[in-house]
Amino acid sequence: MIRFSDKHPAVTALYFISVTGIAMFVPHPVILLLSLAGALSYYLIRGEASARFLCFTAGLALLMTLINPLLSHRGETVLFFINLRPFTLEALLYGANAALLAAGVIVRMNSFSKIMTTEKVLCLIGRFSPRLSAVISAAVRSVPLFSSYYRHVSSFRALCRGYDSEPTPYDRAKESMEAFSATVGIALEGSIDAADSMDARGWQNGHRTASSRFVFGQNDAAAMIYIALSASVCIAAAASGLLDFDFYPVIADYGRGLFPLTSLVSYAFLSFYPAVSECVWHIMWKKRKTEKYPDAEALREYNRREAEK
């Protein structure tokens, strides 16, 4: 049992692309509901939930739901009038649908960004362009370096500079501009050293390979097949128009029969895959006893038993 977040980056990437891709291009309310439910359950089970993030997402969804009927007046079921403009049920539901989509994608992306570290992204990019992956890695490194340089430069310079009177806002702005330009200078100077260090280790050599500690195993292949299968059922149904859904002028679901139902079920399998996988992981660890490092007594016991055999 490998935890979902520890699977090969290719699995993670395929999963997030297909699950959010389908949600974005197939705006069927059931799909979007499944998408949000799946995303939310995984987010909560992972155990890194933040109340602030959830409130923000809920607030945004509520706002989207309410704004649409205020701006759009299409739809036949008028609930009431605001300033002589109709507030329709269809427009409200359309807004709610869009809100579901947004909330689902936001929650999913939050989990994705935590799982898909730069290291994993670079592993994927390295497959296609080993040079680009190295350049991106260098760029990622330069960000914290630059900000730490700037912090130091600005505080040391402020300290070493004396004013004869209280500095004006202009003085301060000028000071921070100077600190910024000095930081750029230092960073550029450092990048010359870095370039030398790259050349010293063969950067100019034509052929570059990419290595990665992530190994694509059998269970990654199985996960890929599972994701591809459940997604393709859904995509096939959507492509043949079986998952079309209209809000205007009246709510109309065109998907009737077994195939659309199957595709919705298969999307549920796709959407809840990480959450279920995570649950199984937690159950496994609940069942497992804490292991002890075998001490001398345990080893003697083992040998005795083996000898008896």
Partner: peptide, 27 residues
Amino acid sequence: QDPETQIVTDRVESELAFGPENIGMPP
């Protein structure tokens, strides 16, 4: 001399792999 500026990549592992990757060593 400068420990900081000679490091090219963002992680220890990729830094160690940087030279071998450049000379086209098999992964």
